[in-house]
């Protein structure tokens, strides 16, 4: 499998075999340091909206492989303020860099960037649409902590209606014969179009508003934040923000080997008292961003 010069834009673009290949490459990256693998290669990070942890994770991955960095962190760069098109910005940057990571508030921006650029583009979030490297590190984490991806009982909890992370993860996991448990208040449940797609693919799923009704079945519990920005009415937000708060009282109602994930940052969804338990893998999950992003950088630059 060859990913040289390929763009990483959307989880929809990847087959099961391709995803497994990327995870395998990430595992190699984790095992072996390659301090000179991307020597003389330049990564441009174009963050049109701030996302410190994603940006740092890409920068660290590039540095660990011996590559160089350039970039800007916000859209305050003068030319962009003057109304330069994204197309023109990318045309300028591609002359300086070998690979470009882009985060942009508009949906579809990464796809347009890929069309403008002859250098590979990696999408680090385009509005509410896609954030494929997050999805890949989520898969990598599940594979690592469960030893497999197939036939798992996966619970997703929180804002399932607007959660980009959740939607992409459900798409990706659908390759692996999962059983899904969608746990959310009715108003924040998984959109019907996703449920229809699962039915079409003959994937089993359950919806619930009470975690305790399904918690004993789960191998993975993926928790997401309920974001204030998503609500037009602040009263609605207040109603839902504290609905799901996991703490040690959950422990008698779960499997011994349940693993709890969260894309971070958390607000109050997971009580710190759970951090020390074997169930908590969310910090490990965040750290897994490094081998996964190293793998992607090396793959699109044709170095593995």
């Amino acid at each position: 499998m060859n990913f040289e010069k390929q763009d990483i834009i959307s989880i929809h673009d990847f087959s099961k075999q391709e995803l497994l290949f990327i995870l395998k490459t990430a595992k190699l990256m984790e095992k072996k340091l390659n301090p000179n693998l991307l020597k003389d290669k330049i990564l441009a990070t174009l963050f049109f909206e701030p996302s410190t942890r994603t940006r740092l994770s890409f920068m660290s991955a590039m540095e660990q492989l011996g590559g160089k960095l350039m970039g800007f962190a916000t859209a305050k760069m003068t030319s962009i303020k003057k109304g330069e098109t994204l197309w023109d910005t990318i045309k300028m940057v591609e002359a300086y860099a070998d690979v470009i990571v882009i985060r942009h508030p508009l949906e579809g921006s990464a796809r347009l960037a890929a069309e403008a650029s002859s250098k590979p583009i990696i999408n680090a979030g385009d509005g509410a649409n896609q954030h494929p490297t997050q999805t890949m590190l989520d898969l990598y984490t599940i594979q690592k902590v469960k030893g497999k991806l197939d036939n798992l009982h996966i619970g997703l909890l929180g804002d399932l209606k607007y959660g980009r992370t959740v939607h992409s993860l459900v798409t990706a996991l659908s390759h692996f014969n999962p059983i899904f448990y969608f746990i959310a208040p009715q108003a924040l449940q998984m959109p019907q179009t996703y449920l229809d797609e699962l039915k079409e693919k003959k994937i089993k799923f359950f919806t619930a508003s009470n975690l305790l009704k399904v918690s004993k079945k789960l191998d993975i519990l993926y928790v997401t934040r309920i974001q204030k920005e998503r609500f037009a009415d602040p009263v609605e937000y207040e109603k839902y923000k504290g609905v799901y708060k996991l703490d040690t009282s959950l422990l008698p109602n779960i499997k011994k080997d349940l693993k709890i994930m969260h894309p971070l940052p958390r607000v109050n969804e997971i009580d710190p008292s759970l951090d020390a338990t074997d169930h908590a893998v969310y910090f490990e999950q965040a750290a897994n961003g490094i081998p996964v992003r190293k793998a992607l950088l090396a793959l699109v630059l044709g170095k593995v």
């Binding site: 098109t85 994204l86 197309w87 942009h104 508030p105 508009l106 949906e107 579809g108 921006s109 796809r111 347009l112 385009d126 509005g127 509410a128």
Partner: peptide, 13 residues
């Protein structure tokens, strides 16, 4: 129909 789509924001796209 998505106002937040790049096609509705990038000039002459």
């Amino acid at each position: 129909s998505n106002p937040n789509c790049i096609t509705n924001n990038e000039k002459s796209m």
